[in-house]
Design a binder for these strands. Structure first.
Length: 273
DNA sequence: GAACAGGCAACTC
DNA sequence: GAGTTGCCTGTT
């Protein structure tokens, strides 16, 4: 049975920004500011109350959640180093409260393969269909949710069997990735311990994984904080605010957080009109 | 109906 | 090695 816990009252943690900044696809708002999701098979519901974040979840899972939300890291301290100019200061201020989620590696790999050339609502729809069709049911607060299907489950399928997902040409990529992870030829745990460059190179051996997707996996799924995905939004923001030949290394080992602030600011301000 | 989308791979030169 | 094009599908 689920219990309610105060996850944090000291760490700056804005759940809406964290869940809506484009890094994850399986947290849904039941009502404004109340999000339900399943991580590593464990269901939870979160909300902000004043400066606190509350979570309703299974007893014994709080340690897992603290790691998932990266609550031990000093984001405010790290962010100070990004404030190299007025623009970056504004990005940091605007994105304050975002946590970089430490997502399950296989789920991250699979989800970002699906993300290519897709918008967030459609990505979420495909991922949800994947879980409903092939994931284990998880009962939570009277409703049935679904866990993300393990790689081994998908490895046994043929691309055709993903037809109900309507994910198009990505289906063979998903099956190939599932098989590589299931048979050990893609070792995500080992990649998480490798350097940024080595992890990227390994990921890019998988069909359907290029530089952008690999950087998303590295940052959101492998806990490599220098991951720096550059999509069309980032390209635009970087070209408008930095010299050509800009190198994200100037942001140091936590460049991925700077990336997320820039990205969130660019998307939030860029599509209002 | 055509063009395009938070990208990749295969093909061209 | 830099640039172009097709790819499933859904939306505009």
């Amino acid at each position: 049975m689920a219990e309610t816990y105060e996850l944090t009252q000291t760490v700056k943690f804005d759940i809406v920004k964290t869940f809506e900044c484009g890094q994850c696809f399986r947290w849904n708002a039941d009502e404004v500011g109340v999000y339900t999701g399943v991580v590593r098979g464990v269901p939870a519901r979160l909300w902000n109350e004043g400066r606190s974040v509350f979570i309703r979840t299974e007893p014994g899972s709080i340690g897992m959640w603290r790691e998932y939300f990266d609550l031990e890291r000093d984001y405010a301290g790290i962010s100070k180093n990004f404030e190299i100019d007025e623009y970056m200061t504004e990005c940091c201020r605007f994105g304050a409260g975002i946590r970089i989620l430490r997502q399950e590696p296989w789920e991250t790999l699979c989800s970002f393969i699906i993300s290519q050339c897709n918008n967030i609502p459609r990505i979420k729809g495909i991922v949800e269909a994947l879980c409903r069709n092939f994931g284990d049911p998880v009962v939570f607060e009277g409703s049935t949710l679904f866990a993300f299907p393990p790689a081994a489950s998908l490895a046994a399928l043929e691309p055709d069997e993903l037809a109900p997902l309507r994910c198009g040409y990505r289906a063979p990529y998903i099956i190939a990735a599932a098989r590589a992870v299931a048979d050990g030829s893609a070792d995500l745990e080992a990649m998480a311990k490798a350097t940024h460059e080595d992890a990227l190179a390994e990921l890019k051996k998988l069909p359907g994984v290029g530089d952008k997707v690999a950087n998303c996996i590295v940052l959101f799924g492998l806990g490599i904080t220098s991951g720096f995905p550059v999509d069309v939004w980032m390209k635009k923001a970087l070209s408008e605010h930095f010299e050509t030949g800009f190198d994200p290394k100037v942001f140091g080992e936590f460049a991925g957080l700077a990336q997320q602030y820039i990205f969130y600011y660019a998307r939030s301000t860029g599509r209002e009109k």
